[in-house]
Design a binder for these strands. Structure first.
Length: 257
DNA sequence: AAGCGATGTTCAT
DNA sequence: TGAACCTCGCTTA
C-alpha cells in the first residue's frame, strides 16, 4: 500500500541501518543476490517516486513495493516469517521486506534509466512543476489518468489523485488539457503539501482537524474527504464512483466539474 | 471458513 | 482491456 510518501518515509527510516556491516538475507530465497550484500555496509538510501534505492558499499538494490509490499521493523533475533524476501539487520534492529513487486540488483545505468522514465516528484524539493504543466497541455486523456502516469508525475497514487482533484475542484474524467493553470497550481501545491504531510504522519490523512486534535486516532475511513467515501466529507453529496486510467476513481459531483 | 478487494505495475491479447 | 504477480485484513456467511 505504497504511494510516494511511504517510500520517502522508508528512505528516511532505513537510514538507521547506515554504518555497520549488515546481515543481509533472503529467508524466502527469491532475492537470490542477497548473499552478495551480506556483511556489506549501507551507504545511503533514496526515494524516486514509488521506487526505493539502497546504496550499499558496493552495489545498489532497487525495491518497488507495488500494491502489497511492505517493510516491517522488528527485533533482529526474531525468526523471520517464511515469506520474507529480504532481511536487513544490525545487532540492534532488523527490517523485513515482504511481498514486494521488485527487489533486485541495479546498476547506475538502471538508476539513470529510471530517472529518465519518471516525471517530477512532488516530494523532491528540486521538482519543476513547469515540466508537468507542459506535459499536461499536450496529454491526450483525462487528468485522472495523467496524475497516475509515473512519467508525468512520480509518486502519486490512487488516494492522492482523488483527494488532490477534490482540492482543485477538478473532475478526474476531465481532459488534462482542459485543466486551467489556476487549477493546476492548486493540484501541485496540494500534492506537495499533502504528500509531505504523509511522510511525516506515515499515512494519508487529508481531512481537516481542529487544532491539537490527535490525527493518529483517525480510522482510515475517517481520514479522507472523497477516496472511498460514501458522501463527500466537505459537502455531503453522494460520491461518484467511476473508472479513470484503469483505476477506481472517486469524485464529488457537486464540487468537481 | 470463504471471499473480496487493495494506496501498483507489467505484460499479453 | 484483462490477467498475472505479490499477501492479508476486513467483510460476509
Amino acid at each position: 500500500m505504497a504511494e510516494g510518501h511511504t517510500i520517502h518515509r522508508l528512505a528516511r527510516d532505513l537510514q538507521e541501518l547506515i554504518g555497520p556491516p549488515l546481515s543481509v538475507s533472503s529467508p524466502q530465497g527469491k532475492f537470490t543476490e542477497a548473499r552478495r550484500f551480506n556483511r556489506k555496509r549501507l551507504r545511503g538510501t533514496a526515494a524516486l517516486g514509488k521506487h526505493l534505492l539502497l546504496y550499499f558499499d558496493p552495489g545498489i538494490v532497487h525495491v518497488h513495493l507495488g500494491l502489497l509490499g511492505k517493510f516491517v521493523r522488528i527485533e533482529p533475533l526474531s525468526p523471520p516469517r517464511l515469506q520474507v524476501r529480504m532481511r536487513l539487520s544490525t545487532a540492534e534492529v532488523a527490517w523485513d521486506l515482504l511481498a514486494p513487486n521488485n527487489c533486485e540488483v541495479w546498476s547506475e545505468d538502471d538508476v539513470e534509466n529510471l530517472r529518465s522514465r519518471l516525471g517530477p516528484d512532488p516530494l523532491d524539493p528540486e521538482a519543476d512543476p513547469e515540466v508537468v504543466w507542459q506535459v499536461l497541455e499536450r496529454f491526450s486523456g483525462p487528468i485522472g489518468a495523467a496524475l497516475l502516469d509515473q512519467s508525468v508525475v512520480a509518486g502519486v497514487g490512487n488516494v492522492y489523485r482523488a483527494e488532490v482533484l477534490l482540492d482543485a475542484g477538478v473532475h478526474p474524467a476531465r481532459s488534462a488539457f482542459e485543466v486551467s493553470r489556476e487549477q493546476f497550481d492548486v493540484i501541485w501545491d496540494s500534492l506537495r503539501r499533502r504528500m509531505a504531510e504523509g511522510v511525516e504522519e506515515g499515512r494519508i490523512i487529508t481531512v481537516d482537524t481542529p487544532e491539537g486534535f490527535d490525527r493518529s486516532s483517525l480510522s482510515e475511513a475517517e481520514a479522507r474527504n472523497v477516496y472511498k467515501q460514501p458522501e463527500c466529507r466537505r459537502c455531503g453529496s453522494p460520491v461518484e464512483v467511476l473508472t479513470v486510467g484503469g483505476r477506481t476513481a472517486y469524485a464529488c459531483p457537486k464540487e468537481q466539474t
